[in-house]
Design a protein around this nucleic acid. Sequence first.
DNA 1: TGCGTCGTACGAAAACTATCGTACCTTTAG
DNA 2: CTAAAGGTACGATAGTTTTCGTACGACGCA
Lengths: 129, 129
Amino acid sequence: MKMNETENNLPEPTKAELEILQVLWEFGPSTVRFVNDQLNMQREVNYTSTLKQMQILTEKGILKRDESQMKHIYIPVEAEEKTKVQLLDRFVNTLYKGSASQLMMQLLGNEKTSKKEIEEIKRLLDSME
Amino acid sequence: MKMNETENNLPEPTKAELEILQVLWEFGPSTVRFVNDQLNMQREVNYTSTLKQMQILTEKGILKRDESQMKHIYIPVEAEEKTKVQLLDRFVNTLYKGSASQLMMQLLGNEKTSKKEIEEIKRLLDSME
DNA sequence: TGCGTCGTACGAAAACTATCGTACCTTTAG
DNA sequence: CTAAAGGTACGATAGTTTTCGTACGACGCA
């Protein structure tokens, strides 16, 4: 088994792939041109590099594309939520042996987590009753 | 800047490196032999591969080692907590734009997060008042 | 003393990831 | 019709990470 595959056999998105996914999550199905422009707001990257990445993502089954137009439209196969849940699950398992509360403790101990955030979390929990 | 370096210039541990760190976190300072044996409970890996990784980790300053014995003893330079906080921080920023409460929502929506865990988190928050 | 075992050192291959140049096709303006 | 602009395809290269073979030194013991 490849190192970058999980037990349920889904390939783990790499860093560059995640960048692309995030654009698609934020703006919805897009062309390579659009994604590339977005990426270039953060860092310089060649159009064909982005194109290649998105083709690879499609090969991997992480993206699908509408080829009915000349400008292909790329769409994530899985919903944002589902992908993030998978990544989060893997993260919790890897670093915290699956203990969500342990992760929480660090989150709350981190000064970068603002009081406002903490209040929001409390409301969330209360509303779950 | 290398892709795998953060803004504060600390090298991000790779997957294989993280595996080794986790053994050291769990069992304390150890020899290569011990770490390798632990890893081999999960997957097959050659002794010299583990050795090399640990040497690289030492070069990077992530581990230090006691060479006073023939069997070198390897020790993480940073505490487990500190390293995990860094990784968590990066994770939240990357996937949740820094919003801890958003991460929480997914954690709580995940059926793998047990009721027991949720209760624990609540107690934690209450005790923070 | 000689040999098997166990250790480290380290270069190089293998695997994986990221980037880019080039070729070539389609559309459109003139 | 033709040139320019903009699109996809894809091989090659570069960069990074992971794995391993080989060399060789320490130790223990028959």
